[in-house]
């Protein structure tokens, strides 16, 4: 079994109007090399589901987003995401704004093949005012409590970045927090995983390594070898987030052309060279709070 794919292979399987889920969290472990590849493709009108960081910002800057399903968009150290803000303030994108936990609940419902999961979260807030498609469900038990029926967030494609994989699609997230990547994979019809390293199955570390295997390979459609593929986001324990680059990216909301000319519309290897090279990225310390 060989699931190794190229960037072109992934792009060929995407089409206009698809719903795409992006793993990671804020400025952490985002499949940025895949996001940049989408940005330089012709694909458009995407619905994007994300615990948003520069993935959302970059897609917004390239006018790829029709609708964003989100709980937040943030660069962590830089709390507000300038490109996303600009898209919102200019009314360029539709939004389904949800509590972070409701996003999880929607992905979980999709993962479990359920139409919805009940929750109190959202009640008493404008999340319900602004999302008229959200319905209620009444508990059939004696409490008869009225709850939100969080609908399944089904994805056509999930894009995830991991530390290590083999060519069969066995993946390992070695950083301490796997975020909700497992649910993105389970909620999606197809999952493409970019990986810092692609090794033989023998080199996955046996039982000790298997602890880091957060979802099974049958969920994985393709594996893409992408060293430093999360840059400028972090990929613990390999490298931290590139604060200097994130600042430059953030500033670029004012004049995106300059940033684009300097860093985008090129191969992943050429991108890495443009931002200082993989040796430098691998030396970026992990963030400390």
């Amino acid at each position: 079994m060989d699931k190794i794919v190229s960037y072109k292979d992934v792009i060929d399987q995407l089409s206009d109007g698809m719903t795409i889920g992006v793993g990671g969290w804020g400025a952490r472990r985002k499949p940025m090399s895949l996001i940049r590849e989408i940005c330089q493709s012709d694909i458009k009108d995407l619905t994007v589901v994300s615990y948003g960081g520069p993935d959302v910002g970059l897609l917004c800057a390239h006018k790829k987003v029709k609708k964003l399903i989100f709980g937040f968009v943030s660069l962590d150290m830089i709390p507000l995401e300038s490109h996303f803000r600009q898209a919102r303030q200019k009314n360029e994108i539709e939004v389904m704004e949800l509590d972070e936990g409701m996003v999880q609940w929607g992905l979980r419902a999709a993962a479990m093949n359920l139409p919805f999961l009940p929750t109190r979260v959202g009640l008493g807030t404008d999340v319900l005012t602004h999302n008229s498609e959200l319905e209620y469900v009444t508990s059939p038990y004696s409490d008869a409590e009225k709850l939100v029926a969080m609908p399944a967030l089904k994805l056509d494609v999930a894009l995830i970045h991991v530390n290590k994989s083999d060519e069969k699609g066995n993946t390992q997230i070695i950083g301490p927090d796997p975020f909700f990547d497992e649910l993105f994979a389970r909620a999606a019809s197809k999952t493409f995983v970019s990986s810092e390293e692609v090794v033989s199955t023998q080199d996955l570390g046996g039982k000790d390594g298997a602890i880091f295997n957060r979802f099974e390979r049958s969920l994985v459609t393709g594996i893409l070898h992408a060293p430093c593929g999360a840059h400028p986001t972090s990929c613990a324990p390999n490298y931290g987030f590139d604060i200097k680059h994130l600042k430059e990216y953030s500033e670029a909301a004012k004049s995106f052309d300059e940033y684009s000319t300097k860093y985008l519309n090129r191969t992943h290897q050429d991108y890495l060279d443009a931002v200082g090279g993989s040796d430098a990225i691998l030396k970026i310390p992990l963030p400390q709070f």
Binding site: G71, R88, Q89, N91, D99, R120, V121, L123, T125, V127
Partner: peptide, 26 residues
Amino acid sequence: ISAIGDYNSPKVQLLGVRGFPGNFIN
């Protein structure tokens, strides 16, 4: 913590509701 002004084209877009709906009800 979501947005200031008209929701459809906010004067100032902030973070998004994050975990506030869940935190305050739970």
